[in-house]
C-alpha cells in the first residue's frame, strides 16, 4: 500500500514549525492543513493555504518586532 498526496513541502526552522503546528491544531486557517509531519525542519501541507501562511508569518513578525527609534524626534 502506498498513499500518494499532492501538496507543498515546507522547509523552516523548528520554531516556525511549532508555529505551523499551532495554526494547524487550533484550525486558525479554518481547517487542518498539515498532511505529514516529516522531521524537525520539514512539513508537508496542502497547497491552498500557502498564501495565507505567508500573510500569517508577515503579521506574526510584525507583532514581535519593535521599530528601532531612529526617526527624527524619537532619538
Amino acid at each position: 500500500m502506498v498513499n500518494v498526496s499532492k501538496g507543498v513541502l515546507v522547509k523552516c526552522d523548528p520554531a516556525m514549525k511549532q508555529f505551523l503546528i499551532f495554526l494547524d491544531e487550533k484550525e486558525e486557517l479554518g481547517k487542518r492543513f498539515i498532511i505529514q509531519d516529516i522531521d524537525d525542519e520539514h512539513l508537508f501541507i496542502s497547497k491552498d493555504v500557502q498564501e495565507m501562511l505567508k500573510e500569517r508569518l508577515d503579521s506574526l513578525m510584525d507583532k514581535i518586532s519593535i521599530s528601532a527609534g531612529i526617526k527624527e524626534g524619537e532619538r
Binding site: V2, N3, V4, K6, G7, V8, V10, K11, M16, K47
Partner: peptide, 14 residues
C-alpha cells in the same frame, strides 16, 4: 519574511 521555503511536490507515505 522568508522563513518558510515552499516546494511543490507529491508525498508518498504509508
Amino acid at each position: 519574511r522568508a522563513r518558510f521555503e515552499f516546494t511543490d511536490g507529491v508525498l508518498y507515505n504509508q
